[in-house]
Each structure stands twice: as C-alpha cells, then as structure tokens.
C-alpha cells in the first residue's frame, strides 16, 4: 500500500495555492489533513501527479467571532475545535460532533475544511453545517465567493467547488442563546462512519418548539436537511406521536446504501430513531 509518485508543493498563501491548482490542472489535488486522500492514494484509487499542501498557508486556521457569526478557518483541526472555548460556549454541537469523528490521532490532523469540502457522505460536519445554516468561503481564480452549505453538496464526492477553488473558511451564524442541540450518531465502533446520524438545532418557547433544523449524515449520497421533519415538530411539545411523524418524514428522504453497517431498511429505521433521540435531547437542553 504505497502511493504513486507525485510532486509536492507547499504554497504560503491561498492565492499561490489557487495559482498552482489552476496551472497544474486536473492532475493536482489540494492536501489538507490528508486522512481521506492519503489512504485513497495508498490504494492507488487516487493518483494525483501534484499535491498542493495547504499547511504552509497562514491565516486559514483558527476560530474567531465576527459579529453575529463564527468563522472557522478551513485548516482548523477537529482537535482545535475540541480545544476551543468559543466553540464549546457558542457552538457546543460542534464540540459534541467533533468528539465522535474518527479517533484522537485523526482529530489532530483532520481538518474541518477537509471534512466539509471533499463531499464524502460519511463525513459528519456537512450535515451539521447544513443544519446550522453555515456558508463556505471559496477562493478561486475568479476571486472569492460564498456558497451556503445547503447548496454545496451535489453528489458523492461532487460539490460546488470549481476547478482551482479552495474552501478557506466556514461561516456559521451563531445560534440563539438558549438553543437546544444534539448530534446523535450510531456507529459500529470508534473510527467508523455513521450507520446513521442526525443533527438537531432548535429553540423552545413555552414548552413548544419554536425553530428547528435537522440534518442527516450518511443516509444518502449527500448530507441531507430534513425540512419536512423539522416543520412537523415546530409548534409541538415533541410528544411521542409527533416524534414518530418527524422520524417518518425524515426516513422519506433517506436513501442509504446497503453496506457492512446494515441493509437499507435498517439504516433508514435507525436514521429515524436518531432523529427522535436528537430531538428529545436537544429539547431537554434548550433553555
């Protein structure tokens, strides 16, 4: 299991990285944490001729507050997220999710930018970003643009990124104070992708759900936003019947593959269970 040969580039700015990607064309791939790409290269399922390592670029790592949004640099690792007080305080669902991604070593290297940008339906952050209404800052030969996470994912490993573009930051509107949240992930063991996972962010008012967003991980070839399910719970006190209805609505949009994690029927069914459990736990946390 040895990668094929390639040339290594380590630009020091995003602009240089973009220039490299444009000039090297299809045979070049950006390298962030490498924990998706390098295993693929070892199996020679990916054989890029050039790797553009983003680790040398200053200014695209770290978490900062920008008015009512929180901006996460693309090269921020999962470990950085776990260590960030700002994240624990303002976006605790990110902390909860980062903890169930891969394992400790992978979290030191694996980046949030890589997790959201490569379009792997098994990654946990994309559904979460859709749930939170995040947008991605993309820098390319034509300049910088912003794409909302909900529009970014088009198919497995197929996203809105144009050739030469690099995802540099994730911008997340800070959720309302007192919001409830939960990321429920069913997996076979530490290090596995989700058999099914659901992200919920909601607010409660007078014992009823006031606002709600629900995201689903690894239950289709892209992350999903379960809009109908969210609509069903708004205005309710999350009684059993409503939860079941919401789960059923979420299951409607799921189309998971049958794999070692289980047959389709199972993965959909536990997808529904994850939605119910996440809703309950989020509601219990809402202030």
């Amino acid at each position: 299991m040895i990668p094929g040969p390639f040339s290594y580039h380590r630009p020091s700015s995003v602009a240089d990285a973009v220039k490299l990607l444009v000039s090297l064309g299809d045979e070049a791939r950006p390298l962030a944490g490498g924990h998706s790409l390098i295993p693929m290269m070892k199996l020679r399922l990916a054989t890029p001729e050039h790797l553009v390592d983003l680790h040398g670029i200053a200014g695209i790592k770290g978490v900062r507050r920008d008015g009512s949004t929180i901006v996460i640099g693309a090269m921020t690792t999962q470990h950085d997220l776990l260590a960030s007080e700002m994240i624990s305080k303002s976006l605790p669902i990110l902390h909860e999710t980062a903890l169930v991604i891969a394992d400790p070593q992978v979290r030191y290297r694996g980046t949030v930018g890589g997790n959201v940008a490569n379009g792997d339906p098994g990654n946990d952050m994309p559904a979460l970003m859709m749930t939170l209404g995040a947008s991605y800052t993309l820098q390319g030969p034509g300049g910088t643009r912003s794409v909302v996470a909900r529009d970014f994912y088009q198919g497995a490993y197929f996203t809105s990124l144009e050739p030469g573009e690099i995802l540099t930051a994730i911008v997340i509107p800070a959720p309302a104070s007192g919001h409830g949240y939960a990321y429920e992930k069913l997996k076979r063991k530490v290090g596995d992708y989700a058999t099914a996972a659901a992200a919920v962010v909601l607010t409660m008012s007078g014992g009823k759900v006031a606002t709600c967003a629900i995201g689903l991980t690894n239950l289709s070839e892209t992350p999903l936003l379960a809009e109908e399910a969210a609509k069903i719970v708004i205005g309710t006190g999350l009684d059993e019947a409503t939860l079941k209805k919401a789960a059923a609505a979420a299951e409607e949009i799921m189309s998971p593959a049958a794999d070692g994690r289980g047959p389709i029927e199972y993965r959909k069914s536990v997808g529904g269970i994850m939605v119910m459990r996440a809703l309950k736990r989020a509601a219990a946390r809402a202030g």
Binding site: D103, R188, K189, V190, G191, D192, Y193, D259, G260
Partner: peptide
C-alpha cells in the same frame, strides 16, 4: 471480500 480492512472487519477498541 467486503470486510477487508479494520474499518469493516470488527476490531474493537478500548471503548467497545
């Protein structure tokens, strides 16, 4: 073979 790695061939960690 559909269980050819430590991801799919169940190899428990200290947590499980």
């Amino acid at each position: 073979v559909v269980t050819g790695s430590f991801m799919d061939f169940f190899m428990p960690t200290a947590v499980e």
